[in-house]
Amino acid sequence: MQKKSYNRKSGYSGMKYLFFIAFTFLMYSSCNEIDSEIPDVPVLIELNLDLPLYNDLAFPNNSILLKNVGFGGIIVSCLTEGEHFAYDAACTHEIIPSCRVEPTGLIGKCSCCDSEFQLFYSAVPAHGPAAAPLKQYNTSLVGNILRIYN
């Protein structure tokens, strides 16, 4: 009677392969960011920071609200000299243009649900029921012209 020899190496390599696939799937599925559900609207705005209306944006820790652009308006903030951020003012909890985040310095507060957002880097919610950050727009500063676009 002959003994059958089993190749344990091939069985383990199959298990390693399955483990690798499962681990990779779990890693990618758990790292999803919370995306904003604010609708995409075309945005291309140029602000002259020398004009009195926009002059506050030339100085750190200031922000302004531009109404009638974007989905719910656009909040533009200046964190440091030359470092600007732009976000849609529509709250990510309510998602209607009339529920707008009103800026005060570098904090914005929703007029409907009282969620508060930090108006720099990624505009994550600091307090309130909102879970997703505000929708961010691109900015570029050339001289004293601040361009906001998507």
Rank of each mutant, 00 (worst) to 15 (best):
Asp35His: 13
Leu65Ile: 10
His84Ser: 12
Glu33Ala: 12
Leu79Gln: 14
Ile34Gln: 12
Lys9Asp: 07
Ala22Lys: 05
Lys9Val: 08
Cys112Thr: 05
Phe85His: 15
Ser63Lys: 00
Gly11Ser: 08
Glu81Asn: 14
Phe59Leu: 13
Ala58Asp: 10
Glu102Trp: 02
Thr24Asp: 08
Lys4Glu: 09
Gly82Glu: 02
Leu66Ser: 06
Arg100Thr: 15
Tyr87Asp: 06
Gly143Thr: 00
Ser5Arg: 14
Lys16Gln: 10
Pro39Tyr: 01
Ile34Trp: 08
His93Arg: 15
Tyr17Ser: 13
Ala89Leu: 11
Leu146His: 03
Gly73Trp: 00
His84Glu: 04
Leu26Glu: 07
Pro52Arg: 01
Cys91Arg: 03
Glu46Gly: 03
Cys99Arg: 02
Ile21Glu: 05
Phe59Gln: 14
Ser111Arg: 04
His93Ile: 09
Tyr28Lys: 12
Cys110Ile: 01
Val76Ala: 07
Val76Lys: 01
Leu119Pro: 02
Ile38Asp: 07
Ala130Thr: 10
Ser5Glu: 12
Thr92Glu: 08
Ser13His: 09
Gln136Asn: 11
Ile96Tyr: 06
Ile96Pro: 00
Gly143Phe: 03
Gly128Cys: 03
Ala58Trp: 00
Ile38Leu: 04
Ile96Asn: 10
Gln136Ile: 07
Leu79Lys: 15
Pro129Ala: 15
Asn150Lys: 11
Pro97Cys: 08
Phe19Tyr: 14
Cys99Lys: 06
Tyr17Phe: 14
Asn32Ser: 11
Asp114Ser: 11
Leu79Asn: 13
Leu51Met: 11
Lys4Trp: 07
Cys31Val: 07
Cys99Thr: 07
Tyr17Leu: 14
Asn32Leu: 14
Asn61Glu: 15
Ser77His: 05
Ser140Leu: 12
Gln2Asp: 14
Lys16Asp: 09
Phe59His: 14
Tyr121Leu: 12
Cys110Val: 01
Gly72Tyr: 02
Ser98Asp: 11
Asn138Met: 13
Ser5Val: 12
Arg8Met: 09
Ile75Glu: 06
Lys16Glu: 13
Leu119Cys: 03
Glu102Asp: 09
Met15Leu: 14
Ile34Tyr: 10
Thr92Pro: 07
Ile21Ser: 00
Glu116Ala: 10
Pro39Gly: 11
Ser30Gly: 08
Ser111Ala: 08
Glu102Gln: 12
Asn62Met: 04
Leu134Arg: 00
Ser140Pro: 05
Val41Gly: 07
Gly11Asp: 04
Ala89Asp: 05
Asn150Met: 05
Tyr149Ile: 01
Lys67His: 11
Pro133Ile: 02
Ile21Gln: 03
Asn68Phe: 10
Gly70Leu: 00
Ile96Gly: 01
Asn144Tyr: 04
Gly72Pro: 03
Gly70Thr: 00
Leu18His: 08
Ile64Ala: 09
Leu106Ser: 00
Arg100Leu: 04
Ile45Tyr: 08
Phe71Ile: 10
Leu26Ser: 09
Lys9Trp: 04
Thr104Gln: 09
Lys135Ser: 10
Asp88Pro: 13
Lys135Thr: 01
